[in-house]
Every structure is written in C-alpha cells, then in structure tokens.
C-alpha cells in the first residue's frame, strides 16, 4: 500500500468519534472527522476520501441529505458510504441503502474490531471495481 487510505467519519457523538478514530488510526488509516452534516459534506467534497462512515442522526444536516448530495455530485458519487447506525433504526437503514449507501453497521452491537472488518471488505470491493 503506497499511501494511507483516507476515511471520513461523520459522527456527532464525541465518544464514538474517538473510539473509531483510534481504532482506524491503529490499523494504519488516515481519519478525517466531521461533527455535523454540513461539515461532513464540505469535507467529503474537498478531500474526496476513500470511504465515508456516515451517522444518520446528525445536527445541521441529517445523514440522508449528506448521502443524497454525495450521490448526486459527480466528484463524490463513487465514494463508498457505510451507514454508521445505532440499534433500532432498521427503517432508516433500509432507506439509506435504497439511496445508494454501500452497507451499514450497528455501533455497539458489533465491536470496533468487527466494524473494522466490514470497512476493509467494503474498501476491497471498491478497489476491485476501480480496477
């Protein structure tokens, strides 16, 4: 791997941000963080990360709106997005998947390490598509 892969974490809970930033850093990823929807969208557009972890319940602009903008913009529409949900949001997840999210995971139900596994497999699939 020549350069570090960049992952954007859009999450308003400080705890989750730190947990996932730490676990991704420990595994050698570069992590960008955003605390709300607007910041998330701005960062995605400017930095074009390799993958976005997107919470749905965000201040200022909700996750669905961020996802819609990412998928509508030609520069960002290829970026894989994993919905970063909490338990009990089955309907929201379904909606996000229909809107073009690549996958979803449930914070708390799975350990950070298990979620890391999912991130890796989504990245691998995205790499395969690119080639």
């Amino acid at each position: 791997m020549e350069s570090k892969e960049v992952i954007l974490l859009v999450e308003d809970q400080e705890g989750f941000r730190r947990i996932y930033q730490d676990v991704l850093n420990a595994d050698g990823y570069e992590v960008l963080t955003a605390m709300d929807g607007e910041e998330g969208w701005e960062t995605a557009k400017q930095k074009k990360p390799d993958l976005i972890l997107l919470d749905l319940g965000l201040p200022k602009m909700d996750g669905f709106e961020v996802l819609r903008r990412i998928r509508e913009d030609p520069e960002t529409k290829k970026i894989p997005v994993i919905i970063f949900s909490v338990i009990g949001e089955q309907k929201d997840i379904q909606k996000a998947l229909e809107m073009g999210a690549n996958d979803y995971t449930v914070k708390g139900f799975y350990t950070p390490r298990e979620i890391l596994g999912k991130i890796k497999s989504v990245l691998t699939q995205a790499d395969l598509k690119k080639d």
Partner: peptide, 24 residues
C-alpha cells in the same frame, strides 16, 4: 429512554473494547 441510554452505553463499551484491543 432507551434511545437516550444506548449511545452512552455503546460508547463506554467501545472504549473498553479499544483498550482491551491494546489501541491505547
């Protein structure tokens, strides 16, 4: 109530899991 409770509990668990994972 559950929605309010689950995030802090999940966060605490995440921190513990990271510590056990040797990240810190």
């Amino acid at each position: 109530v559950s929605h309010q409770l689950k995030t802090p509990v999940a966060e605490i668990n995440g921190f513990i899991e990271n510590m056990l994972d040797g990240i810190t």
